[in-house]
Amino acid sequence: MNLKSFIRDIPDFPSKGIIFKDITPLLKDPAAMKLAMDALLDLVGNQKIDKVVGMESRGFFFGPLLALNLNAGFVPVRKPDKLPAEKISVIYDLEYGTDTLEIHKDAIQKGDKVLIHDDVLATGGTAKATCELVERLGGEIVQCNFLMVLDFLNGEEKLRAYEIRTLIHY
């Protein structure tokens, strides 16, 4: 089974000139989703993971499943004003402007072994900002793990300090 065959291109979404990689066909097929989940787990290997951190919102599909299978906790990283308890935030650069991400202050303990997960690595801004949040709380990033990477956007450059693992390259 080829996982790429379950990812469809949506032209001009969310704006003209963008080709969006839509994983909903993969998510609705139990065999494809299981194959992706098992392959993502294989990327981690036998490394000890205490927390899996997933970014809003597409990191919420496989992130909790990875956590469950790794016997780890799941930690959401969200856009501003979505988390109810005390939190820290980071502002990061986008191609045109800035954005903000937040994490609960008590989500990561000093020394926690952390897996960062998202479904796609594009420019790397969101993943880099998430790494910064985790490290500010004392977490040790074991790996940044992605379903797919858009190689032409060079997002891996922003994450050179971390081990990066990906299933699919575009």
Rank of each mutant, 00 (worst) to 15 (best):
H104L: 11
H104N: 13
K105Q: 15
D106Y: 00
A107S: 12
A107Q: 00
A107I: 00
A107V: 02
A107H: 01
I108Y: 08
Q109G: 04
Q109I: 07
Q109M: 10
K110V: 12
K110Y: 11
G111N: 06
G111Q: 03
G111R: 04
D112S: 01
D112V: 01
D112T: 07
K113D: 00
K113T: 00
V114G: 00
L115H: 10
I116A: 02
I116L: 13
I116N: 01
H117D: 03
D118V: 04
D119G: 03
D119M: 06
D119W: 03
V120A: 11
V120I: 12
V120L: 15
L121N: 05
A122V: 12
G124W: 02
G125Y: 07
G125K: 10
T126C: 08
T126K: 05
A129G: 09
A129E: 01
T130A: 13
T130F: 02
C131Y: 07
C131D: 02
E132T: 15
L133M: 11
V134F: 12
E135C: 07
R136C: 08
L137D: 08
L137Q: 11
L137S: 03
G139Q: 05
E140G: 12
I141C: 05
I141P: 02
Q143I: 14
Q143L: 14
Q143T: 09
Q143M: 13
N145A: 07
F146Y: 08
L147G: 09
